[in-house]
């Protein structure tokens, strides 16, 4: 599934209750409902889009917020197929969600090599209040991010910490890869186009 008007397809993957939907809520609507609305697991996948301006260029980011429940795993490929970037989320206070993140990275590496991986530890505000609740060390996460030549972020949808940063980075990386790709193509191609003659007879102009 690649969208018509969407420039970058971004997919969010991760264990249920890792905070994927909250992250999207914060990014697109700049709000956090976690304290007022009880937890609702996502059904299937939800789609949202946002336009960002990077280097004076408008880029439309299409975000697929997938359900973390295991039964959707089998069909998750239709959601991440053709994605340029994947934000793999894990809950900083839940070790098992980090194992799940490894699983998703494996999937992406197997089926979607063209997809850049951004690792994202969520619920930073909780461990900020009480560092003892952290179960995933920054070092482990960083090592995993290095493995996939990606980056690790620690975010909080409640405070908004580093949420915009990820998406801006995704947009910047996308534009960079696009120009790099273009330059690569340009280097190989010899242009055979004739310079159009200006000033023909008046009737043809």
């Amino acid at each position: 599934m690649s969208g018509g008007k969407v420039d970058i397809k971004v997919v969010l993957l991760g264990k249920a209750y890792a905070g994927k939907t909250s992250l999207v809520e914060r990014y697109i609507h700049n709000r956090f409902l976690g304290e007022t609305v009880p937890y609702q697991n996502t059904i299937g996948a939800a789609f949202g889009a946002k336009t960002v301006t990077v280097n004076n260029q408008n880029v439309v980011i299409g975000i697929w917020d997938t359900a973390g429940s295991e039964r959707y795993e089998a069909m998750s490929r239709i959601y991440y197929r053709g994605a340029k970037a994947a934000i793999v989320c894990y809950d900083l206070t839940d070790k098992s969600s980090f194992d799940r993140a490894r699983f998703w990275i494996g999937e992406l590496q197997k089926y979607e090599q063209g997809c850049q991986i951004y690792l994202c530890g969520t619920k930073f505000d909780i461990i900020e209040d009480n560092p003892d609740l952290r179960t995933v060390s920054e070092r482990d996460a960083h090592a995993l991010a290095l493995d996939v030549r990606g980056e690790n972020y620690e975010t909080s949808s409640k405070t908004g910490k580093d949420i915009d940063k990820i998406f801006t980075k995704i947009a910047v990386d996308y534009l960079a890869s696009k120009t790099a790709h273009k330059n690569e193509v340009d280097a190989d191609i010899v242009e055979l186009r004739k310079h159009p003659k200006k000033h023909l007879c008046q009737g043809c102009s």
């Binding site: 939907t21 999207v24 809520e25 697109i28 609305v37 609702q40 697991n41 996502t42 059904i43 299937g44 996948a45 939800a46 789609f47 949202g48 917020d65 359900a67 959707y72 069909m75 959601y79």
Partner: peptide, 29 residues
């Protein structure tokens, strides 16, 4: 049953047993 559709356009598999119990339809909600 689900509030989650209220947040954004969703795309979800659903099987309708009387229609076809063997497979999913995809629902845009």
């Amino acid at each position: 049953a689900s509030e989650s559709f209220k947040a954004a356009e969703s795309w979800t598999p659903i099987c309708l047993p009387k229609f076809d119990a063997a497979g999913f339809l995809q629902a845009h909600v």
